[in-house]
Simulated scan of single mutants.
Amino acid sequence: QDEEAARDAWRQALAGADEPTRVAPDDTVVSASTPFGRVSLLAGEELAAALKDFARTRGLTLNTVVQAAWAMIIGQMAGRNDVVFGASVAGRPAGLPGMETMLGLFINTVPVRVRLDPAQTVAELLTELQAAQSALLDHQHLGLTEIQRLAGPGAVFDTLMAFENYPGDPDAQPVTEGLRLTDSMLRESTNFPLALVVNPTDDDLRIRLDHLLSVFDAAMARSMVERFVWVLEQVVVDS
């Protein structure tokens, strides 16, 4: 990987962002034992279909639309028009030979910057965001600590978003003869006060928000998720 090119790309992407984007108090501490709550809901088949059609007809990814909606929620909470939040990326570039057979967790967290201009249309915002994210695809391997060291306070954030667009079959069985899968379970944790996970299914959109209970109670978290869904609805209606 071209490390210097990656450093330059992140410096440029975050240039002018000089303040952290925080929604929790500065002294908030998250540890393995910190209690979290969780809010989950489905966007609904009608909205999910409309969002997929909206993105497809405009040459956008659904991830771009979701990121823009989340940025609007974070911007409102933080009182900022220049928003930075974290995004989980797989770290498995398709162009790297043999990547699909490599074992290990290559996941990384990188900053996503969204500038919310009231004079800009939603279509313009989405096009700009997708172009910015596409330009950074080859540089997502750079560690978050180094990115934040290069970019300074503007690369600091306390919210995370993950768009889980990988397929999975819970009923799939190993091909090894004589071996049968009887059960599976997934546990996830986060070190961010707010972590949004969006998972598109065949006909819906699963949304989950993990929230630090000492800062965001269940009612606040549900309100955030409902506002997030409302923003997604408005993106389709107003564009």
Score class of each variant (00 low, 15 high):
Val84Pro: 02
Ala9Ser: 07
Pro200Phe: 01
Thr145Met: 10
Ile147Asp: 01
Gly79Arg: 02
Leu186Cys: 08
Arg115Leu: 08
Val110Tyr: 01
Thr34Asp: 09
Leu179Gln: 04
Glu19Lys: 13
Val29Glu: 13
Asp171Ala: 02
Arg22Val: 06
Met185Gly: 12
Arg208Trp: 09
Val229Arg: 02
Pro153Phe: 05
Leu160Tyr: 00
Ala90Tyr: 01
Phe216Tyr: 03
Ala48Thr: 02
Leu196Pro: 01
Gln130Ile: 04
Asp2His: 13
Ser239Pro: 09
Ala49Cys: 08
Leu150Asn: 04
Val156Gln: 09
Ala17Glu: 09
Ala221Asp: 08
Glu226Cys: 08
Asp210Leu: 14
Leu209Gln: 05
Glu45Pro: 00
Val84Gln: 03
Val39Asp: 06
Leu42Gln: 15
Gln1His: 13
Asn165Gly: 12
Thr28His: 02
Ala78Cys: 03
Arg115Asn: 13
Thr21Phe: 03
Thr190Gln: 07
Gln12Thr: 14
Arg92Met: 05
Leu144Cys: 10
Gly86Ala: 06
Glu4Ser: 13
Glu177Trp: 08
Gln76Asn: 13
Gln120Gly: 10
Thr64His: 01
Gln12Phe: 08
Ala32Phe: 12
Ala15His: 12
Asn63Tyr: 13
Ala69Lys: 03
Val89Ser: 02
Ala90Ser: 10
Pro20Ala: 02
Arg11Ala: 04
Met224Ile: 15
Glu177Cys: 07
Gln133Phe: 04
Val197Gln: 12
Thr190Cys: 06
Leu160Ala: 02
Gly59Pro: 04
Thr101Pro: 05
Gly59Val: 07
Arg227Asp: 14
Pro170Gln: 00
Asn63Gly: 11
Leu150Cys: 04
Leu137Met: 14
Asp138Lys: 14
Asp238Lys: 14
Ser88Trp: 08
Thr34Lys: 06
Glu146Cys: 14
Ser239Arg: 11
Met185Cys: 11
Arg11Ile: 03
Leu14Pro: 04
Leu14Arg: 07
Leu125Asp: 08
Met102Ile: 15
Gly178Thr: 03
Val215Ala: 07
Gly16Leu: 00
Val156His: 08
Leu232Arg: 01
Val83Glu: 01
His139Met: 11
Arg115Met: 08
Gly152Asp: 02
Thr182Leu: 15
Glu4Leu: 15
Glu19Ala: 15
Ala132Asp: 05
Leu116Ala: 10
Ser239Leu: 15
Pro118Gly: 10
Ala43Trp: 02
Asp18Lys: 09
Met77Lys: 15
Ser33Tyr: 08
Leu42Asn: 15
Leu150Ser: 03
Leu144Asp: 06
Pro97Asn: 06
Pro93Trp: 01
Leu209Glu: 05
Leu196Val: 03
Leu14Tyr: 05
Leu186Asp: 07
Ala119Thr: 15
Asp18Ala: 14
Leu14Gln: 06
Arg208Pro: 05
Asp117Phe: 02
Ala151Trp: 05
Trp70Met: 06
Ala195Arg: 09
Phe85His: 07
Met161Thr: 13
Arg206Cys: 07
Ile147Gln: 01
Ala71Leu: 08
Gly79Val: 03
Val236Gln: 01
Thr127His: 09
Met99Gly: 09
Ala15Met: 11
Gly143Met: 12
Gly79Trp: 04
Leu41Gly: 10
Glu177Ala: 12
Ala55Tyr: 01
Arg22Lys: 09
Arg7Val: 07
Pro193Lys: 07
Trp230Ser: 14
Gln67His: 14
Asp238Ser: 14
Leu105Val: 14
Val39Asn: 09
Ala43Phe: 03
Arg56Gln: 13
Val225Gly: 01
